[in-house]
Design a protein around this nucleic acid. Structure first.
Lengths: 173, 173
DNA sequence: CTAATCTGCTTGCATTTTGCAATCGGTTGC
DNA sequence: GCAACCGATTGCAAAATGCAAGCAGATTAG
Protein backbone atom coordinates (compact mmCIF):
# COMPACT_ATOMS: atom_id res chain seq x y z
CA UNK A 1 0.00 0.00 0.00
CA UNK A 2 3.01 2.33 -0.18
CA UNK A 3 4.43 3.95 -3.30
CA UNK A 4 4.92 1.87 -6.45
CA UNK A 5 7.83 4.06 -7.41
CA UNK A 6 7.36 3.70 -11.15
CA UNK A 7 10.01 6.40 -11.38
CA UNK A 8 11.76 8.95 -9.17
CA UNK A 9 10.24 11.90 -11.02
CA UNK A 10 8.65 14.35 -8.56
CA UNK A 11 5.52 14.75 -10.68
CA UNK A 12 5.12 11.01 -11.05
CA UNK A 13 5.58 10.41 -7.33
CA UNK A 14 3.09 13.15 -6.49
CA UNK A 15 0.61 11.44 -8.78
CA UNK A 16 1.22 8.14 -7.05
CA UNK A 17 0.23 9.82 -3.79
CA UNK A 18 -2.96 11.58 -4.88
CA UNK A 19 -3.42 10.76 -8.55
CA UNK A 20 -6.69 8.95 -8.00
CA UNK A 21 -10.29 10.00 -7.85
CA UNK A 22 -10.67 10.20 -4.09
CA UNK A 23 -7.53 10.97 -2.07
CA UNK A 24 -7.47 14.66 -2.85
CA UNK A 25 -11.24 14.94 -2.35
CA UNK A 26 -10.81 13.61 1.18
CA UNK A 27 -8.00 16.06 1.86
CA UNK A 28 -10.09 18.88 0.39
CA UNK A 29 -12.93 18.08 2.80
CA UNK A 30 -10.55 17.96 5.74
CA UNK A 31 -8.78 21.19 4.78
CA UNK A 32 -11.66 23.35 3.57
CA UNK A 33 -14.56 21.57 5.25
CA UNK A 34 -12.87 21.02 8.59
CA UNK A 35 -13.99 17.37 8.75
CA UNK A 36 -12.16 15.13 11.16
CA UNK A 37 -14.31 12.00 11.60
CA UNK A 38 -15.08 9.05 9.36
CA UNK A 39 -18.81 9.71 9.19
CA UNK A 40 -18.32 13.39 8.51
CA UNK A 41 -16.19 12.51 5.52
CA UNK A 42 -18.57 9.78 4.43
CA UNK A 43 -21.76 11.84 4.51
CA UNK A 44 -20.22 15.25 3.98
CA UNK A 45 -18.63 15.02 0.56
CA UNK A 46 -21.03 15.98 -2.19
CA UNK A 47 -19.42 13.47 -4.51
CA UNK A 48 -20.60 10.53 -2.38
CA UNK A 49 -17.63 8.32 -1.55
CA UNK A 50 -18.31 4.68 -0.61
CA UNK A 51 -17.38 3.63 2.91
CA UNK A 52 -14.95 0.90 1.84
CA UNK A 53 -13.10 3.30 -0.44
CA UNK A 54 -12.98 5.91 2.28
CA UNK A 55 -11.57 3.40 4.76
CA UNK A 56 -8.98 2.28 2.24
CA UNK A 57 -7.89 5.82 1.38
CA UNK A 58 -7.65 6.94 4.99
CA UNK A 59 -5.43 3.96 5.68
CA UNK A 60 -3.32 4.67 2.64
CA UNK A 61 -2.96 8.37 3.42
CA UNK A 62 -1.85 7.44 6.94
CA UNK A 63 0.75 5.02 5.58
CA UNK A 64 2.02 7.74 3.27
CA UNK A 65 2.39 10.16 6.16
CA UNK A 66 -0.35 12.58 5.12
CA UNK A 67 -2.70 11.85 8.02
CA UNK A 68 -2.59 10.67 11.61
CA UNK A 69 -5.37 9.10 13.63
CA UNK A 70 -6.13 9.42 17.33
CA UNK A 71 -8.89 8.54 19.76
CA UNK A 72 -11.44 11.25 20.32
CA UNK A 73 -11.42 11.80 24.12
CA UNK A 74 -15.09 12.81 24.10
CA UNK A 75 -16.32 9.56 22.60
CA UNK A 76 -14.70 6.16 22.96
CA UNK A 77 -15.75 5.05 19.50
CA UNK A 78 -14.79 8.13 17.57
CA UNK A 79 -11.51 8.40 15.75
CA UNK A 80 -10.17 11.81 14.92
CA UNK A 81 -8.02 12.28 11.85
CA UNK A 82 -5.40 15.01 11.62
CA UNK A 83 -3.46 16.48 8.73
CA UNK A 84 0.30 16.32 8.84
CA UNK A 85 2.59 19.12 7.68
CA UNK A 86 3.00 17.15 4.45
CA UNK A 87 -0.73 17.46 3.78
CA UNK A 88 -0.98 21.07 4.96
CA UNK A 89 1.61 22.14 2.38
CA UNK A 90 -0.81 21.02 -0.33
CA UNK A 91 -2.79 24.23 0.19
CA UNK A 92 -1.02 26.15 -2.60
CA UNK A 93 -1.52 23.24 -4.98
CA UNK A 94 -5.21 23.06 -4.14
CA UNK A 95 -5.47 26.80 -4.65
CA UNK A 96 -3.88 26.55 -8.11
CA UNK A 97 -5.99 23.53 -8.99
CA UNK A 98 -9.14 25.37 -8.01
CA UNK A 99 -8.12 28.43 -9.98
CA UNK A 100 -7.37 26.38 -13.07
CA UNK A 101 -10.63 24.44 -12.81
CA UNK A 102 -12.59 27.63 -12.39
CA UNK A 103 -11.23 28.98 -15.66
CA UNK A 104 -11.47 25.90 -17.83
CA UNK A 105 -14.17 23.63 -16.45
CA UNK A 106 -17.94 23.88 -15.96
CA UNK A 107 -17.83 24.64 -12.25
CA UNK A 108 -20.92 25.69 -10.32
CA UNK A 109 -20.99 29.22 -8.98
CA UNK A 110 -21.51 28.43 -5.31
CA UNK A 111 -18.74 25.84 -5.27
CA UNK A 112 -16.22 28.03 -7.05
CA UNK A 113 -16.55 31.12 -4.88
CA UNK A 114 -14.06 29.67 -2.39
CA UNK A 115 -11.55 29.01 -5.14
CA UNK A 116 -12.02 32.55 -6.38
CA UNK A 117 -11.39 34.11 -2.98
CA UNK A 118 -8.43 31.85 -2.34
CA UNK A 119 -6.93 32.84 -5.67
CA UNK A 120 -7.45 36.55 -4.97
CA UNK A 121 -5.96 36.19 -1.50
CA UNK A 122 -2.80 34.77 -3.02
CA UNK A 123 0.19 33.36 -1.13
CA UNK A 124 -0.35 35.56 1.97
CA UNK A 125 -3.83 34.12 2.45
CA UNK A 126 -2.54 30.59 1.83
CA UNK A 127 0.12 31.07 4.49
CA UNK A 128 -2.42 32.33 6.98
CA UNK A 129 -4.65 29.35 6.22
CA UNK A 130 -1.78 26.90 6.60
CA UNK A 131 -0.95 28.39 9.98
CA UNK A 132 -4.53 27.95 11.07
CA UNK A 133 -4.41 24.32 9.98
CA UNK A 134 -1.16 23.85 11.89
CA UNK A 135 -2.94 25.16 14.95
CA UNK A 136 -5.96 22.88 14.51
CA UNK A 137 -4.14 19.73 13.48
CA UNK A 138 -0.63 19.93 14.89
CA UNK A 139 -1.35 21.85 18.08
CA UNK A 140 0.92 24.75 17.21
CA UNK A 141 0.17 28.07 18.88
CA UNK A 142 -2.40 30.28 17.18
CA UNK A 143 -1.53 33.72 15.86
CA UNK A 144 -2.98 36.05 18.51
CA UNK A 145 -3.60 38.89 16.02
CA UNK A 146 -5.28 36.75 13.41
CA UNK A 147 -8.85 37.95 12.96
CA UNK A 148 -11.50 35.70 11.40
CA UNK A 149 -10.22 32.38 10.14
CA UNK A 150 -9.72 31.82 6.43
CA UNK A 151 -12.05 28.83 6.55
CA UNK A 152 -14.80 30.90 8.16
CA UNK A 153 -14.31 33.62 5.54
CA UNK A 154 -14.58 31.14 2.68
CA UNK A 155 -17.57 29.44 4.27
CA UNK A 156 -19.38 32.73 4.75
CA UNK A 157 -18.86 33.62 1.11
CA UNK A 158 -20.20 30.24 0.05
CA UNK A 159 -23.30 30.65 2.17
CA UNK A 160 -23.89 34.14 0.83
CA UNK A 161 -23.94 32.79 -2.72
CA UNK A 162 -26.30 29.98 -1.75
CA UNK A 163 -28.61 32.47 -0.04
CA UNK A 164 -28.63 34.85 -2.99
CA UNK A 165 -29.43 31.99 -5.34
CA UNK A 166 -32.30 30.87 -3.12
CA UNK A 167 -33.53 34.46 -3.11
CA UNK A 168 -33.41 34.66 -6.89
CA UNK A 169 -35.23 31.34 -7.20
CA UNK A 170 -38.03 32.30 -4.82
CA UNK A 171 -38.57 35.73 -6.35
CA UNK A 172 -38.80 34.12 -9.78
CA UNK A 173 -41.53 31.77 -8.54
CA UNK B 1 -15.54 9.81 -22.36
CA UNK B 2 -16.24 13.36 -21.19
CA UNK B 3 -16.55 14.59 -17.61
CA UNK B 4 -18.64 12.57 -15.14
CA UNK B 5 -19.46 15.79 -13.28
CA UNK B 6 -19.77 14.16 -9.87
CA UNK B 7 -19.95 17.74 -8.62
CA UNK B 8 -19.31 21.28 -9.84
CA UNK B 9 -16.42 21.79 -7.41
CA UNK B 10 -13.35 23.14 -9.25
CA UNK B 11 -11.01 20.75 -7.47
CA UNK B 12 -13.24 17.79 -8.20
CA UNK B 13 -13.57 18.71 -11.85
CA UNK B 14 -9.83 19.21 -12.19
CA UNK B 15 -9.36 15.73 -10.75
CA UNK B 16 -11.81 14.32 -13.25
CA UNK B 17 -9.63 15.75 -16.00
CA UNK B 18 -6.19 14.58 -14.87
CA UNK B 19 -6.72 12.74 -11.60
CA UNK B 20 -5.53 9.42 -12.95
CA UNK B 21 -2.19 7.76 -13.17
CA UNK B 22 -1.36 8.66 -16.77
CA UNK B 23 -2.95 11.82 -18.17
CA UNK B 24 -0.62 14.20 -16.38
CA UNK B 25 2.39 12.01 -17.19
CA UNK B 26 1.58 12.35 -20.88
CA UNK B 27 1.20 16.11 -20.54
CA UNK B 28 4.46 16.27 -18.60
CA UNK B 29 6.29 14.49 -21.42
CA UNK B 30 4.79 16.81 -24.00
CA UNK B 31 5.51 19.95 -21.99
CA UNK B 32 8.94 19.19 -20.55
CA UNK B 33 10.08 16.49 -22.96
CA UNK B 34 8.84 18.17 -26.12
CA UNK B 35 7.26 14.96 -27.41
CA UNK B 36 4.66 15.28 -30.14
CA UNK B 37 4.22 11.79 -31.65
CA UNK B 38 2.59 8.62 -30.42
CA UNK B 39 5.80 6.59 -30.47
CA UNK B 40 7.79 9.27 -28.73
CA UNK B 41 5.29 9.23 -25.90
CA UNK B 42 5.13 5.44 -25.88
CA UNK B 43 8.87 4.78 -25.73
CA UNK B 44 9.92 8.03 -24.12
CA UNK B 45 8.24 7.96 -20.75
CA UNK B 46 10.34 6.25 -18.11
CA UNK B 47 7.21 4.94 -16.43
CA UNK B 48 6.38 2.72 -19.41
CA UNK B 49 2.83 3.40 -20.49
CA UNK B 50 1.00 0.70 -22.47
CA UNK B 51 0.00 1.55 -26.02
CA UNK B 52 -3.72 0.98 -25.47
CA UNK B 53 -3.75 3.24 -22.43
CA UNK B 54 -1.80 5.90 -24.31
CA UNK B 55 -4.25 5.78 -27.22
CA UNK B 56 -7.18 6.01 -24.84
CA UNK B 57 -5.74 8.96 -22.91
CA UNK B 58 -4.78 10.90 -26.02
CA UNK B 59 -8.32 10.50 -27.27
CA UNK B 60 -9.75 11.54 -23.94
CA UNK B 61 -7.47 14.58 -23.62
CA UNK B 62 -8.52 15.65 -27.09
CA UNK B 63 -12.20 15.33 -26.20
CA UNK B 64 -11.58 17.43 -23.11
CA UNK B 65 -9.92 20.14 -25.15
CA UNK B 66 -6.40 19.71 -23.77
CA UNK B 67 -4.84 18.43 -27.00
CA UNK B 68 -5.32 18.69 -30.73
CA UNK B 69 -4.10 16.30 -33.40
CA UNK B 70 -2.93 17.05 -36.92
CA UNK B 71 -1.25 15.23 -39.79
CA UNK B 72 2.50 15.53 -39.88
CA UNK B 73 3.25 16.90 -43.37
CA UNK B 74 6.60 15.06 -43.48
CA UNK B 75 5.11 11.60 -43.04
CA UNK B 76 1.68 10.40 -44.14
CA UNK B 77 1.29 8.12 -41.17
CA UNK B 78 2.54 10.41 -38.45
CA UNK B 79 0.15 12.33 -36.28
CA UNK B 80 1.40 15.36 -34.40
CA UNK B 81 -0.21 16.25 -31.12
CA UNK B 82 -0.35 19.82 -29.85
CA UNK B 83 -1.11 21.33 -26.48
CA UNK B 84 -3.99 23.77 -26.24
CA UNK B 85 -3.93 26.91 -24.10
CA UNK B 86 -5.89 24.93 -21.52
CA UNK B 87 -3.01 22.46 -21.19
CA UNK B 88 -0.29 25.12 -21.34
CA UNK B 89 -1.76 26.86 -18.31
CA UNK B 90 -1.03 23.72 -16.30
CA UNK B 91 2.62 24.76 -16.12
CA UNK B 92 2.30 26.51 -12.73
CA UNK B 93 0.45 23.50 -11.32
CA UNK B 94 3.15 21.15 -12.58
CA UNK B 95 5.79 23.42 -11.07
CA UNK B 96 4.07 23.36 -7.67
CA UNK B 97 3.51 19.63 -7.89
CA UNK B 98 7.16 19.05 -8.67
CA UNK B 99 8.24 21.30 -5.82
CA UNK B 100 5.97 19.51 -3.36
CA UNK B 101 7.10 16.08 -4.50
CA UNK B 102 10.73 17.09 -4.24
CA UNK B 103 10.27 18.03 -0.59
CA UNK B 104 8.14 15.14 0.60
CA UNK B 105 8.77 12.15 -1.64
CA UNK B 106 11.78 9.95 -2.45
CA UNK B 107 12.63 11.59 -5.76
CA UNK B 108 15.81 10.78 -7.63
CA UNK B 109 18.35 13.55 -7.93
CA UNK B 110 18.62 13.66 -11.71
CA UNK B 111 14.86 13.73 -12.19
CA UNK B 112 14.25 16.43 -9.61
CA UNK B 113 16.79 18.94 -10.84
CA UNK B 114 14.29 20.29 -13.36
CA UNK B 115 11.68 20.75 -10.65
CA UNK B 116 14.25 22.55 -8.53
CA UNK B 117 15.21 24.99 -11.28
CA UNK B 118 11.59 25.58 -12.20
CA UNK B 119 10.78 26.35 -8.59
CA UNK B 120 13.73 28.74 -8.28
CA UNK B 121 12.77 30.45 -11.54
CA UNK B 122 9.32 31.15 -10.12
CA UNK B 123 6.39 32.71 -12.00
CA UNK B 124 8.60 34.72 -14.40
CA UNK B 125 10.25 31.52 -15.64
CA UNK B 126 6.87 29.79 -15.88
CA UNK B 127 5.53 32.63 -17.99
CA UNK B 128 8.50 32.49 -20.31
CA UNK B 129 8.08 28.74 -20.65
CA UNK B 130 4.37 29.07 -21.37
CA UNK B 131 5.12 31.59 -24.10
CA UNK B 132 7.60 29.19 -25.66
CA UNK B 133 4.95 26.48 -25.60
CA UNK B 134 2.45 28.85 -27.21
CA UNK B 135 4.99 29.42 -29.97
CA UNK B 136 5.62 25.69 -30.50
CA UNK B 137 2.06 24.45 -30.19
CA UNK B 138 -0.22 27.33 -31.10
CA UNK B 139 1.96 29.06 -33.68
CA UNK B 140 2.13 32.33 -31.79
CA UNK B 141 5.09 34.59 -32.57
CA UNK B 142 8.27 33.92 -30.60
CA UNK B 143 9.76 36.50 -28.29
CA UNK B 144 12.68 37.88 -30.34
CA UNK B 145 14.77 38.74 -27.25
CA UNK B 146 14.28 35.43 -25.51
CA UNK B 147 17.66 33.74 -25.15
CA UNK B 148 17.94 29.99 -24.58
CA UNK B 149 14.62 28.19 -24.15
CA UNK B 150 13.48 27.11 -20.72
CA UNK B 151 13.22 23.53 -21.90
CA UNK B 152 16.80 23.58 -23.16
CA UNK B 153 17.97 25.06 -19.86
CA UNK B 154 16.20 22.37 -17.84
CA UNK B 155 17.44 19.64 -20.15
CA UNK B 156 21.04 20.85 -19.89
CA UNK B 157 20.84 20.80 -16.10
CA UNK B 158 19.45 17.27 -16.18
CA UNK B 159 22.26 16.08 -18.42
CA UNK B 160 24.87 17.73 -16.24
CA UNK B 161 23.62 15.78 -13.22
CA UNK B 162 23.59 12.52 -15.18
CA UNK B 163 27.14 13.18 -16.37
CA UNK B 164 28.42 14.01 -12.89
CA UNK B 165 26.82 10.85 -11.53
CA UNK B 166 28.45 8.76 -14.26
CA UNK B 167 31.76 10.44 -13.40
CA UNK B 168 31.37 9.59 -9.72
CA UNK B 169 30.45 5.99 -10.54
CA UNK B 170 33.43 5.42 -12.83
CA UNK B 171 35.94 6.96 -10.43
CA UNK B 172 34.59 4.75 -7.65
CA UNK B 173 35.11 1.61 -9.76
C1' DC C 1 -33.92 -0.54 31.35
C1' DT C 2 -34.37 -0.88 26.82
C1' DA C 3 -34.55 0.11 22.21
C1' DA C 4 -32.99 2.92 18.72
C1' DT C 5 -29.23 5.20 16.94
C1' DC C 6 -24.54 6.16 15.99
C1' DT C 7 -19.44 4.70 15.75
C1' DG C 8 -15.72 3.19 12.34
C1' DC C 9 -15.30 0.11 9.64
C1' DT C 10 -15.75 -4.99 6.86
C1' DT C 11 -17.79 -8.30 3.60
C1' DG C 12 -19.54 -10.12 -0.74
C1' DC C 13 -20.30 -9.38 -5.29
C1' DA C 14 -20.91 -7.09 -9.90
C1' DT C 15 -18.89 -3.81 -12.93
C1' DT C 16 -15.21 -1.10 -14.72
C1' DT C 17 -10.52 -0.02 -15.45
C1' DT C 18 -5.87 -1.34 -16.10
C1' DG C 19 -1.77 -3.87 -17.72
C1' DC C 20 0.42 -6.87 -20.90
C1' DA C 21 1.56 -8.98 -25.19
C1' DA C 22 0.59 -9.80 -29.65
C1' DT C 23 -0.97 -8.01 -33.85
C1' DC C 24 -2.82 -5.07 -37.72
C1' DG C 25 -2.86 -2.60 -42.26
C1' DG C 26 -0.43 0.92 -44.20
C1' DT C 27 4.12 3.83 -45.04
C1' DT C 28 8.80 4.59 -45.49
C1' DG C 29 13.86 4.10 -46.28
C1' DC C 30 17.17 1.35 -48.39
C1' DG D 1 11.53 -6.30 -52.18
C1' DC D 2 11.73 -6.08 -47.52
C1' DA D 3 12.77 -4.72 -42.94
C1' DA D 4 11.70 -1.15 -39.90
C1' DC D 5 8.39 2.03 -38.35
C1' DC D 6 3.56 4.38 -38.03
C1' DG D 7 -0.58 4.89 -34.84
C1' DA D 8 -3.21 2.32 -33.10
C1' DT D 9 -6.55 -2.29 -31.92
C1' DT D 10 -7.61 -6.84 -29.89
C1' DG D 11 -7.99 -10.50 -26.40
C1' DC D 12 -7.43 -11.70 -21.98
C1' DA D 13 -6.03 -11.69 -16.97
C1' DA D 14 -5.65 -8.91 -12.91
C1' DA D 15 -6.73 -5.14 -10.12
C1' DA D 16 -9.55 -1.30 -8.67
C1' DT D 17 -14.06 0.60 -7.93
C1' DG D 18 -18.94 1.00 -6.64
C1' DC D 19 -22.86 -0.57 -4.17
C1' DA D 20 -25.61 -2.49 -0.52
C1' DA D 21 -25.71 -4.87 3.51
C1' DG D 22 -24.01 -6.01 7.89
C1' DC D 23 -21.17 -5.93 12.36
C1' DA D 24 -19.91 -5.31 17.34
C1' DG D 25 -19.47 -2.05 20.59
C1' DA D 26 -20.76 2.76 22.49
C1' DT D 27 -24.04 6.18 23.26
C1' DT D 28 -28.39 8.34 23.86
C1' DA D 29 -33.55 9.17 24.14
C1' DG D 30 -37.67 7.83 26.39
Amino acid sequence: MSLDRRSGCPINLSLEVFGDRWSLIILRDMIFGGRRHFRELLNGSIEGIASNILADRLKRLMELGMLTKADDPSHKQKAIYSLTEMAITLVPILAHLGAWGRVWLPTSEELSIRAELLEKGGPPMWEKFMNELRHEHLGLPADPAAGPSVRATLQAAYEAVVASKAQAASSAA
